[in-house]
Design a protein around this nucleic acid. Structure first.
Length: 288
DNA sequence: AAGATTTGACCCGA
DNA sequence: TCGGGTCAAATCTT
């Protein structure tokens, strides 16, 4: 098991690698194969930094948390929607949790249905269910609660599974493929690409870090319905949300494919920052 | 007016 | 009995 410090370093390194690839794309849109959308790259960057912040904020993930994250792909059916049914904390449908410095954007539309103060916590917990709960009988729910401040850390816990994935058109579903390291063992290669899960017959998303030591692999297993929730505080993604608001309101089209990539980011700012990061060029995406 | 959010009440499990 | 999850009427927003 890696130390928290190592995890933070790896998360940041991975974020850097994603940022570097995004930089390459901004500089020369024709340079890579575009198997990953800019949106997904940006999303990965934010997620890596969120993880790093989460670790640094003295909220180490327990083994239970890690197990629950790794079980995010579990295919257990959603809970029956009996009224006021209390969720057992050990229930396998409590399948994913995220601690991040801002409320988590996951691309789905959620409707808030409750808010409760929680004992021994000064922050209230908000309860959300999928907005398509009625239309598509989608049983996905999530809880969101601030668990720490300075820096703020929000914990989002997902229950059940989205079955409202109608017309989901992830144009850049990607998985990382563990690759061989060179003889010197000093380079780390991350490879992105669409990958169809043959057994499940569906695309799966996620990313992995292929590093020298297997035990140091950061593995972010995410299911297709994990994006970050955009709130008024989530400035990184707010304009993306605005871009997508109209399409989401009229039909259930996921944001990934509908947004003009060139409108997503402050390219100049990003490039300026990346220039200073270049000297840490530790990753090779195979994009030259 | 319709949809989303708020909030007090209700219900269930520990 | 208490804590937490959900309901649903009231209120707010667009």
């Amino acid at each position: 098991m890696n130390s928290p410090h190592e995890k933070v370093v790896q998360a940041i390194l991975y974020g850097h690698s994603c940022a570097k690839r995004l930089k390459l794309r901004l500089e020369d849109p024709m340079a890579d194969d575009r198997s990953v959308s800019s949106y997904d790259l940006a999303k990965s960057i934010v997620h890596c930094f969120s993880n790093a912040i989460s670790i640094l904020s003295d909220q180490p993930k327990s083994e239970d948390d890690q197990v629950s994250e790794l079980s995010s792909m579990d295919s257990s059916p959603p809970l029956p929607h009996s009224k006021r049914r209390k969720i057992n904390s050990t229930n396998s449908t409590k399948n994913w949790r995220d601690d991040s410095p801002d409320p988590y954007y996951d691309g789905f539309l959620w409707r808030k249905y409750g808010q409760k103060s929680i004992k021994n916590s000064k922050y209230e917990r908000s309860y959300y269910r999928c907005s398509y709960n009625i239309d598509h009988d989608c049983g996905a729910r999530k809880h969101e609660q601030q668990i720490k401040e300075n820096p703020p850390v929000y914990r989002t816990t997902y229950f059940g599974h989205h079955i409202c994935k109608i017309n989901h058109n992830h144009d850049a579903v990607f998985t990382a493929v563990e690759d061989q390291v060179d003889d010197a063992g000093s380079s780390r290669i991350i490879r992105f690409g669409k990958e169809l899960d043959q057994e499940k017959g569906s695309y799966s998303t996620g990313f992995s870090l292929s590093a020298k030591h297997e035990e140091s692999i950061i593995k972010e297993e995410t299911c297709t319905d994990q994006y970050r929730e955009i709130t008024g505080d989530d400035k990184d993604c707010q304009h993306v949300m605005e871009e997508n608001q109209s399409s989401l309101s009229s039909s259930y089209t996921p944001p990934l494919s509908s947004v003009s990539e060139t409108d997503m980011f402050d390219s100049d700012l990003l490039l300026n920052n990346l220039d200073s990061w270049d000297r840490y060029g530790l990753f090779d995406f195979g994009v030259h």
